[in-house]
Nucleic acid binder design. Structure first.
Lengths: 155, 155
DNA sequence: ACAACTCGACAACCTGGTTTACCATTTCGA
DNA sequence: TCGAAATGGTAAACCAGGTTGTCGAGTTGT
């Protein structure tokens, strides 16, 4: 006998779980004053981080070209989540920095993710959830918890 | 005490798991004669199914507009995975049908997914993987295993 | 028979990705 | 030290796939 479960369900379950979390995150963020944030923005802002980054560095972290990173920064700048400031020591660089609004969004996201994880823990049991995380860590192996992976679907 | 693990890791682990499976699927599909297939195509072809579908129906299944579905069909048609045939009983409709190449790709995908699941079972243990799937099913709850969810990131 | 609905297609637009090219600046080595 | 090479940011042109709005052709129901 081979498998009693078809293999194609596994990726769908993983995706459904991911999507459920992200959808609920953004529903909550919208309620808390960030209705314009999109998943892609959260990833990008996470990659910018509290220390800021250059566009090139951001592209490297997100796994996209520096031009694509620049466009995303344009968007985040319009929405008021980041700002570009000239680098005082290198005339070529522009440092991308989170605005207070950006910091607020990131902080709220962290809190909401903790709450969502607590919901899962309540539904599954603390140990079972911990084992789920451990199992995933084992299965994905050396693959770092990358922050890129936003658009690699369509390409 | 609250949580010993930060909540933001859970979605990243789910995404990493999903991505690992999909990346390996497409690496294998490329080796087996389908180098042009993209994740988005697999979802769409799955939604077309062996019975075919109209563009409007396909859009409904994928959770996108009929126009977007039509564009995806254009692409799949170029790649030789589907064909449009006139519906004999309804002059407005065009039935989208998998070509033999499309059926081949779908069949290979199913086999590869089974193999990938077997890899996970070998790495985690059969019971642990089954529990992971059960836990995910419980956590995502009523959310159907939807085939849409392709592009809802960026929007 | 005719009004209302449905299907598919087209157009215009958005986001976010790519490659190519260019300018400004910094770095490095002869 | 000074010019060549490397690097950072931006712009242009393009692609994929998403949106809404419009419209003609074909079906359906009264």
């Amino acid at each position: 006998m081979t498998e009693d479960r078809p293999g194609f369900e596994l990726p769908l379950l993983l995706l459904a779980g991911f999507r459920a979390l992200i959808d609920r995150l953004h529903a909550e963020l919208a309620r808390q004053g960030h209705p314009d944030m999109r998943p892609v923005h959260g990833f990008a802002m996470q990659a910018v981080g509290l220390d800021g980054a250059s566009a090139t560095e951001l592209g490297r972290r997100l796994g996209v070209s520096k031009q694509a990173a620049g466009k995303t920064v344009d968007r985040l700048e319009e929405l008021g989540y980041v700002e570009r400031v000239d680098d005082p020591v290198d005339g070529r660089r522009k440092l991308i920095r989170l605005t207070p609004r950006g910091v607020d969004a990131l902080g709220r996201s962290a809190i909401i993710f903790d709450e969502l994880r607590a919901d899962w823990a309540a539904a599954l049991g603390v140990d079972r959830l911990a084992d789920l995380e451990d199992a995933l860590r084992t299965a994905v192996g050396s693959t770092e918890l990358r922050v890129d992976t936003v658009s690699w679907f369509g390409t």
